[in-house]
């Protein structure tokens, strides 16, 4: 700290680029969108910033509330499934030897190398009526029939174009977002605590619940937030995998900016999504602060 004044020039030399970037390409556009959310359409291209709350009022129409709550529920279910699936993976990664660990990490990162669109279409190829899953089931079904079981004709499962398809898609896409923070938290965990717990007679499950999970809570919280937020704002997945009843908020926003050409309403919806996100961040901070106090006692 005593070098602060001396280093000021160095500080600004390094900070200038990120600051300019942040202001020009993050703060300014967001401010613009925020301003639009209080505007009205004045002709096909002009938006008058009138300070109206009309756009936010529109968002309280029942169908919009429906879409918003559907988005929250679907994202929440997907996040919970991610947590259940990711925790054992993160544990396995933590306790694996270095070589296996790096392979596991690579496997987790691998999907990021492929475009989301391609991955979603791969899911469609798996799940559609004439997809690989139904093919496999039909195959075993026919074997069973040929062995004399009277099962009748195979009726393909309707896997696509419904809410479960969206949840499967969201879990598929967002699982790495859950694994990585969990792994980061568990990797820092003091192993001697686990050994102590086991030595002192606690079983593996008890050790897991009473020692590992509480210590990993910050990682779990980070994972929940970092998974839930993009899942709620997911655009491609619900659009491609969802059925006639499944509209999520991102698609709704996209339509306002494009087809409806109603930028003020689209901006308001975007910011509502942002406010919801902020609420979840606030909750996280709140729980962390509380958790901190508990451990301080």
């Amino acid at each position: 700290m005593q070098n602060w004044f001396e280093n000021k020039r160095f500080f600004w030399a390094t900070m200038l680029a990120p600051t300019v970037w942040f202001l020009a390409f993050f703060v300014a556009p967001m401010a613009l969108v925020w301003a639009y959310s209080f505007g009205e359409n004045a002709g096909p291209v002009n938006i008058a910033i009138t300070g109206t709350f009309g756009n936010y009022a529109k968002a309280f129409r029942p169908e919009i509330i429906q879409v918003l709550s559907d988005s929250v529920v679907l994202a929440f279910i997907a996040t919970l499934i991610c947590l259940v699936l990711a925790f054992p993976v993160a544990i396995a990664m933590t306790f694996a030897d270095d070589k296996t660990k790096s392979w596991l990490l690579l496997l987790i990162m691998l999907p990021f190398w492929t475009n989301l669109l391609i991955r979603t279409y791969a899911l469609i190829a798996m799940m559609r009526t004439e997809g690989f899953i139904n093919f496999s089931f039909a195959f075993f079904h026919n074997i069973a029939v040929s062995l004399g079981f009277n099962l009748g004709d195979y009726v393909p499962m309707e896997l696509l174009y419904n809410k479960s398809a969206i949840v499967i898609g969201l879990v598929y896409v967002h699982l790495p977002f859950m694994v990585l923070p969990l792994y980061a938290a568990l990797d820092k965990l003091d192993r001697s605590l686990i050994e102590a717990s086991l030595d002192l007679g606690a079983g593996h499950m008890t050790t897991m619940w009473k020692i590992v999970v509480p210590l990993a809570l910050p990682g779990i919280a980070a994972g929940l937030v970092i998974t839930f937020i993009p899942a709620m704002g997911a655009y491609l997945t619900p659009d491609l995998l969802g059925g006639p009843n499944d509209l999520m908020i991102a698609t709704l926003i996209e339509r306002q900016f494009k087809r409806a050409n109603d930028w003020p309403f689209g901006s308001a919806l975007s910011f509502i999504l942002m406010y919801v996100t902020l609420i979840f961040f606030a909750l996280r901070t709140f729980f962390e602060a509380r958790g901190g106090k508990v451990s301080a006692h």
Binding site: G43, P44, R61, P62, E63, V67, D70, N245, F265
Partner: peptide
């Protein structure tokens, strides 16, 4: 017109959100 486009879009939202 603009309002027409927006009212169709709202109607579509209601269709999609209807239970």
């Amino acid at each position: 017109g603009q309002e027409y486009a927006q009212s169709i879009e709202s109607a579509m939202n209601r269709v999609r959100a209807a239970k």
